[in-house]
Design a protein around this nucleic acid. Structure first.
Lengths: 124, 124
DNA sequence: CATTGGAAAGTACGGGTGTAATCTGGCAAG
DNA sequence: CTTGCCAGATTACACCCGTACTTTCCAATG
């Protein structure tokens, strides 16, 4: 249901990038990326199965895994937690923080302005 | 040096709110807040000492603890990690995400606009 | 100097995590 | 029908974390 660990999330990311994937494919993408033995990847897959975060099924000749939770949902709970714990749930201070630490690129600024305009237009 | 755990961060937050604090003070602020036995709080203090995240010293009649790392630094590494893992290091997509999930209050919008104006003025 | 009170260290223990090997059982191919 | 491969389960093990108690050691106080 919940609490996908860091290592497990690497598997999820692979499946979110491309779904479905066979065990073999997961191992060959995610293994080298992280320096994991095949057995390790299989353990992570097992744990994700147990957590109902993914499902495996045989389809047209092979056995494939698919994510059962949407990346957006996961991102939501992860980032919501951080926002609450560190910034009292307010988005602006978070952005201000990044701004102070020179983490706001010109590209970010452009995108942010566009985003704000869009939101205001929608509300109109 | 690193990796302050969730529970440990509660102690840090108390010390960041008011520094220095005695063990007694930490226990009586942080204990009830989290439903922790005094012994638990002391364990967390010990672990933070071992991690060099705080320091204890006797000063004018009592024994007091002070944080050794700045809250801003901690917030920085925590949020940077999330930003990198979830949003490829780009701030705008993060804000966009919150916007989509109705997490952007009117107040946030106001503050964001002010923030952006300020940044642009500074750059001028 | 002896006692005491508190800080720090040590011990405990169940659960999660990272890392990994092996066992098992069913399906497919020969 | 038998055999082999592969998914899933089991087992392993050290470390971190949450939760907590007990022991040790130092410093101040009487």
């Amino acid at each position: 249901m919940q609490a996908i660990s860091e290592a497990e999330s690497r598997i999820m990311e692979a499946l979110w990038r491309k779904t479905p994937l066979s065990a073999e494919q997961i191992i060959s993408t995610v293994g080298p990326e992280n320096g994991w033995a095949p057995a390790t990847v299989k353990t992570l897959i097992t744990r994700l199965l147990k957590k109902n975060a993914i499902a495996g099924a045989k389809e047209d000749g092979g056995y494939f895994y698919r994510p059962l939770i949407a990346r957006a949902d996961w991102v939501q709970s992860e980032s919501q937690g951080l926002l609450d714990r560190l910034f009292k749930g307010e988005v602006a201070p978070l952005v201000a923080h990044f701004a102070e630490h020179r983490q706001l690129s010109a590209k970010d600024l452009r995108q942010l302005k566009a985003l704000i305009s869009k939101i205001e237009d929608d509300g109109k």
